[in-house]
Amino acid sequence: MAPPPRHSTAKVLGILGAVAVVLVVAAVAGYQLFSRSSGAFPEAKYRMSVRDELLDGKYELSQDLSDSSGKAVVDENRSRANVRDPKAVVAQYAGQGEQAGGALVVSGMYGRFKDSASARDDMMRGAAEAQGASVAVPARDITPAGSGMTVRCQVLTSDQGTGGARSNVPMCAWGDDNTGATVGLVTPEDAAKDPSDIDLDELARTTLRVREEMREPIR
C-alpha cells in the first residue's frame, strides 16, 4: 500500500506562517494592554524598518503587513497613556537556501514607550492569550552571552491550522525605550518536535540579530 499523504513543505509553512502572524500581532496588542505607565517619556532616538532580507540573506521579505495588521494594532492603542508616536512594523520572511521552507515573522512597534522593562513579559503574555494558543514552554528571560541584553522567550502551540493539527510556535520578544517586537521562527522540523526540545537559546540570539538589523538611529 502507498504511504499516507504528507503535508507539503509549502502547505506546512503556509499554516505556520499564518499562525505566527496572528500570534505576534496579538503579542504587540498585549504589550500595550498590560504595560504599566510611570515616569517621563524617553527621547525618540531609534526607529524600526522592514528590510528586504534578514540574517545575511537567509530570509527574504514575503509580506509587509505594517499598513494592515500593524495599523490596526496602532490605531487600537494610540491613545494609551504609556505610548507616544507609535508606528507598527509587521513583516513575514521566507527562508532561503538551507532555511528554505522556514518562515520568520517580526511584529513590533517603535515610538516612545514607558516602562520598557515590562514589555517583554507583556508581549509574551499577550501572545499566550491569543485565541487557539496555549503555552507549551513557559516564558523565561534569556541573556545571550556577550549581548548585555535580555529577551523573553516561550513556545506556544496553536490549533489554528487546518484539520485541527496543533503546531509549535516558538517566539522571543525584546523591549526598549523606542522599540519592541516579537520574533517568531517557524520550521517544519520544529512544528512536530516535542516543544521542550526547541532551542530557545538559539532563538534568543537570532532575535537580537533581527533587532540589530531592523533597529536604526533617527538622524
Rank of each mutant, 00 (worst) to 15 (best):
P86M: 06
P86N: 03
K87I: 12
A88Y: 02
A88R: 05
V89M: 13
V90H: 02
Y93M: 04
Y93N: 09
A94C: 10
G95V: 04
Q96T: 13
G97Q: 07
G97F: 10
G97A: 12
Q99H: 12
Q99R: 11
Q99V: 13
Q99M: 14
A100E: 11
A100L: 14
A100V: 15
A100D: 08
G101Y: 10
G102N: 15
A103T: 15
A103N: 13
L104M: 15
L104A: 11
V106W: 00
V106F: 00
S107I: 11
S107N: 06
G108N: 04
M109D: 04
M109T: 13
M109N: 02
M109R: 02
Y110Q: 03
G111A: 13
R112V: 14
R112I: 11
K114V: 11
K114W: 01
K114P: 10
K114M: 10
S116A: 13
S118V: 15
S118H: 01
A119Q: 07
A119N: 04
D122Y: 08
D122L: 09
D122E: 09
M123T: 11
M124E: 06
R125I: 07
R125D: 07
G126K: 05
G126P: 14
A127P: 07
A128G: 15
A128R: 03
E129R: 11
A130G: 01
A130H: 03
A130E: 06
Q131H: 06
